[in-house]
Structure formats: structure tokens, C-alpha cells
Design a protein around this nucleic acid. Structure first.
Length: 529
DNA sequence: CGACTTTGACCGGCGC
DNA sequence: GCGCCGGTCAAAGTCG
């Protein structure tokens, strides 16, 4: 709560507005959707550049100047297709200007114009070829990326299979924290199903996942399976399971705005002074659909007030707007990669939270890249398991010079592969009712490299914070799977024919992972003693 | 007038 | 049992 009266505050803001204009422009992409007052309304507008740019770039095979829109929208994303855009614009301009000159010219002028036109035409053709070449490169990168991810998924599935068959890891030995996963997710799924009434493609499409969650629930979900789950009922169920359900994802990012924009509509319903922090904590709930259970808390960091901490909790019971969904798609892969588990897209928060509750340090010893690259930490002291993604520092990989450069095309990669990201690649039956084994896959060199590349690419995007927020709000409880699924529908790409695999290498990797997994579980178990 | 924010009250969990 | 604290509710105020 500000001590300054609102009107006075408003005046001050108006006065400051002009001086700040230049600053605002600099951070416009973040700021435009922000603000408490009626913030929700206008927020949706700005966000969909990821999808538009990415989708277009992927779907448009012809050079029809489509890059113009996509890149205008993507102005916040440095290096993404700038070449294409600028080239197109220049060419169009030049081409348009040519006939005008030609019309008014004398004979000599006409000759020179003709020559000029020929030159321009040549340049145009050259640029067109360049465009096509770049698109091919982009396609290649996308293909190889999909193949790589496919291999990762397969390896993890193998690991799950072996893990399930391995009697060394009975459920009884699983650290309690790890068991957070299913209760966390099942209510969320149920909530989504209840709110959607099953008319949503995503819900049906995700029946496998929901089914997994319900199976994992060991019959607790049977009450919901009768299809009579009303929102009130779900709410009760959620409250009953609150201690287990509450898994949060927190994003720390530097921002002067009162709230980071994530493409969703939020309504403030409370504000409290939290202990140990002079800055108030604001509570928002998603208002994009009546009864959407997603909530978020926004608070400034006590140590550094420039750092905005946004904490998401819950599962959207509705489809995200294209803008938010697109960004969710964009970043959910990054987060999923960070979480590095086949179920990560579905219940990333739950998985990590469970691990963390058990033993954070051993976890991150085993997850050096995930934790380091994304600046992620897990809070044990929090009342609920909380993943914290610290975006206030450059990823270590970048800082250490591991990724001294990343081609401009790379940032587009994550945006292009979501059509077939996690859900599509994850057969429902492949996810065992033992989430404990799911997310512990160790990253091999290739995956590490991919992760670092993605991290570098994504975090270099000034809109990453915004995008990540959108992703997290969906990842936390099923949105992460909804987004890619919807993305598959929107992009029409599906996952058909994704690359081949290397069985032997995969099996070896799975074996190594399993060994490491066992060691890790043992340490988790020991740490709880 | 409806939607939203503000803000004090209320509730439940948790530690002592 | 009591008090603290985080989270939510809901009435009142604000705004467009």
C-alpha cells in the first residue's frame, strides 16, 4: 500500500510521464502491459510476437514478405530474422520507387532507370535467394533440434521403464517430497477438466496425462472420475490437499513495472505486508475464465527493490489467449528443458519441488547444468515447494563464456519446436505412476549443449521474463502441456516423423542415468533421515 | 454502472 | 491454548 494518496500519486505519475518517456520506450516491451489499474485489460495485446514470428517463419515457405509483420512484432527479440525483415522492407521500398522514377524520366533518364531497375531486380532476386537459404538453415536447425529432443525423450522413457521395473526403488522408499507430484497435479487436472466440462480439445487430448495423474492418485481421484466435479467441489478437494498440491514457481526478474506481463488477465484481490520485507505483496487471481484457480503473488525483493518476484500457483482452467499460449509454448520448452524430465512439461514444479524438499544440494550437484544455466534454485524454507528462476543474472554459461556467441537464428529454435514438444512426445502409458523417477534423468553432453544453447538464446531475449512468466503459469499445473498441445494444433505441425534415435547410445545413456538416479535417490533418502 | 483496486477483517496453519 | 503469519474475503472506494 502506498502512503501517497492515489490522486496525488496519479498527478506525480503524469508529471513524470514525460520525463520518463524515453526510458519507457527502452523498456516498453515489458512495461506496456503492466500496471495495476485496469492492467489486465490491455495486457493481452502485446504478447504474441513469439508465436506469430515463430509460426510464420515455420509455416511460410514462400517469400511473400510475410516477415514484415512477424518482425515488427518481434522487435523485442534481437537478431531474430532481422535480416529477412530489413531486406524485405528495403526491397519493397526500392522496387516501388523504381517505376515512379521511370515514368517521369527523359530518354536518358529512362535508360538509366532501366539499368537501375535491372540492378534492383538482381538485388531482389539475390535477397530472395538469401531468404530461402536462411529459411532452409532455419528448417535444418529446427529439424535437428526436434531430433535431438526426440532422442532425449526416448532416453528418458527408457529410463522410466527400467526404473519402474527396478524393484530397488519401491514406492515406500521414495522420499516423501517426491510424492508431491501426483497430488499436486491431479487436482489441477481435475480442476481443469471440471471447468472445461470436457469440451476443450486440450482436456481430451490430455486425457492420457490426466489419467496418469489420476492413477498416481491411487483412487483418490475416483471421486472426480464420476464427472460430477463442480468447481466448488474441486475447490474443496484442493483445499483438502492443499499442503500437497501447493507447488509454486517463482520468477525473479529485474523490472520497474509493478507486475510482469504474461498475457493473462489478473485481478488483484489482496495485498499484505509480508514479514521481513518492506514491500507489500500483492495477490492476483486469473480472471480470464470464471473459476480459474491460478493465482500469483507479486512482490519486490527486500534486498534489491529492482527485482520483482512473481510467484505462480495453480492451473489455468481455460485456454490461454494466443498471445499467452504462444509465449508459454515458447518458454515452456526452456523450462521443461531446465527441468529435464519427460513429465516436466506437465508437472515441472511438482517434480522439482519434491526433489527439493528432500535434498536440494544433492539435486543440484546432479543437475549442474539445469540449475546453473537457468539460475534456478529451490526453496526449502518456503511454506510450499517453490521453484525459483532467477533471471536477474545472466546464465553462468554465458557469463563463463561457454557460449560466446549464438547465431541470430538460434533464438528462434525453441519457438519452432513446440508443436511437438512434450505432450506429443510422451505416450500416456510411458509415464509411470512413479514420478520420482521421471525427472531425474541426467543430461548427457548433447542435451547439456542444447540446454545451454537454448538458455543462452532465450535469456538473451529481452522478453524472456515476460514469456517465461506466461510459460510458468501454464507449466505449473498442466498448462505446460496444454500449451504445447494447443501449439501443435495451432501450428498444425504435430510430431509426426520426428527424427530417428540411436538405440545403443540411448540405452547406455539410460543406464548411466539410472545409476545416477539410484545414487541420487539414496542421497535424497539419506538426507531425510 | 460495472469492473477493478484498496484495505481491514477473518480464517487456518504452524510454532512455541 | 495462544499468538504470529500468510492467504483470502468482502465491503467500500475509485475509475472509465
Amino acid at each position: 500500500m502506498d502512503l501517497v494518496p492515489k490522486q496525488e500519486q496519479h498527478k506525480e505519475e503524469e508529471e513524470k510521464e514525460e520525463e520518463k518517456e524515453s526510458m519507457i520506450v527502452a523498456e516498453h516491451s515489458n512495461r506496456a502491459n503492466f500496471g495495476h489499474g485496469g492492467s489486465g485489460r490491455s495486457e493481452i495485446k502485446e504478447v504474441d510476437f513469439f508465436s506469430t514470428g515463430g509460426a510464420r517463419r515455420r509455416t511460410d515457405d514462400d517469400d511473400d514478405g510475410d516477415g514484415e509483420d512477424g518482425n515488427r512484432e518481434a522487435s523485442g527479440a534481437p537478431g531474430r530474422g532481422n535480416t529477412t525483415v530489413n531486406t524485405a522492407l528495403d526491397l519493397l521500398t526500392t522496387g516501388a520507387a523504381t517505376p515512379v522514377n521511370g515514368e517521369e524520366g527523359t530518354a536518358a533518364g529512362a535508360a538509366s532507370d532501366q539499368k537501375e531497375a535491372a540492378t534492383v531486380e538482381g538485388e531482389l532476386r539475390q535477397a530472395g535467394e538469401e531468404n530461402r537459404r536462411l529459411r532452409r538453415m532455419l528448417d535444418d536447425l529446427t529439424r535437428s533440434y526436434r531430433a535431438l529432443y526426440h532422442q532425449l525423450i526416448q532416453a528418458q522413457q527408457q529410463q522410466q521403464a527400467s526404473g519402474a521395473a527396478n524393484s530397488m526403488l519401491p514406492a515406500a522408499t521414495v522420499p516423501a517430497g517426491l510424492q508431491f507430484v501426483d497430488p499436486c497435479m491431479a487436482p489441477a487436472m481435475r480442476a481443469a477438466a471440471a471447468h472445461d466440462g470436457g469440451d476443450r480439445g486440450d482436456s481430451d487430448g490430455g486425457s492420457g496425462s490426466a489419467g496418469e495423474a489420476e492413477h498416481q492418485n491411487n483412487g483418490r481421484s475416483s471421486a472426480q472420475q464420476d464427472g460430477s466435479g463442480t468447481p466448488e467441489r474441486d475447490e474443496n478437494a484442493e483445499r483438502a490437499e492443499a499442503p500437497l498440491r501447493r507447488v509454486r514457481v517463482s520468477v525473479r526478474a529485474r523490472s520497474e513495472a509493478p507486475m510482469i506481463s504474461d498475457g493473462c488477465q489478473w485481478r488483484k484481490y489482496g495485498q499484505k505486508m509480508a514479514k521481513g520485507n518492506p514491500c507489500p505483496r500483492a495477490y492476483y487471481r486469473c480472471t480470464m475464465a470464471t473459476g480459474c484457480p491460478v493465482r500469483k503473488q507479486v512482490q519486490r525483493c527486500a534486498e534489491d527493490k529492482a527485482v520483482l518476484i512473481t510467484t505462480y500457483e495453480g492451473t489455468h482452467s481455460h485456454q490461454l489467449p494466443p498471445a499467452a499460449a504462444a509465449m508459454a509454448k515458447t518458454t515452456s520448452a526452456a523450462a521443461a528443458m531446465f527441468l529435464s524430465g519427460p513429465a516436466a512439461s506437465r508437472d515441472a514444479g511438482a517434480l522439482f519441488a519434491g526433489h527439493h524438499v528432500a535434498a536440494p544440494a544433492p539435486l543440484f550437484q546432479s543437475y549442474p547444468y539445469a540449475s546453473a544455466a537457468m539460475g534456478a534454485t529451490l526453496s526449502a524454507s518456503a511454506p510450499f515447494p517453490t521453484i525459483t528462476l532467477d533471471l536477474t543474472h545472466p546464465p553462468p554459461a554465458l557469463a563463463a563464456g561457454l557460449l560466446p556467441h549464438h547465431p541470430p537464428a538460434l533464438p528462434a529454435m525453441p519457438f519452432l519446436m513446440y508443436g511437438d514438444f512434450p505432450a506429443a512426445h510422451r505416450p500416456a502409458a510411458a509415464v509411470p505412476p512413479q514420478p520420482t523417477t521421471v525427472s531425474l534423468g541426467m543430461m548427457d553432453a548433447r542435451n547439456r549443449s542444447a540446454l545451454e544453447t537454448m538458455t543462452a538464446a532465450i535469456t538473451s531475449d529481452p522478453n524472456f521474463t515476460t514469456a517465461l512468466a506466461a510459460a510458468l503459469s501454464t507449466i505449473i499445473g498442466g498448462g505446460g502441456e496444454a500449451a504445447p498441445r494447443s501449439g501443435a494444433g495451432a501450428n498444425g505441425d504435430g510430431n509426426s516423423g520426428s527424427g530417428g534415435t540411436e538405440p545403443s547410445a540411448t540405452a547406455a545413456a539410460a543406464g548411466a542415468r539410472e545409476t545416477a538416479l539410484h545414487a541420487l535417490l539414496q542421497r535424497l533418502h539419506d538426507s531425510r533421515q
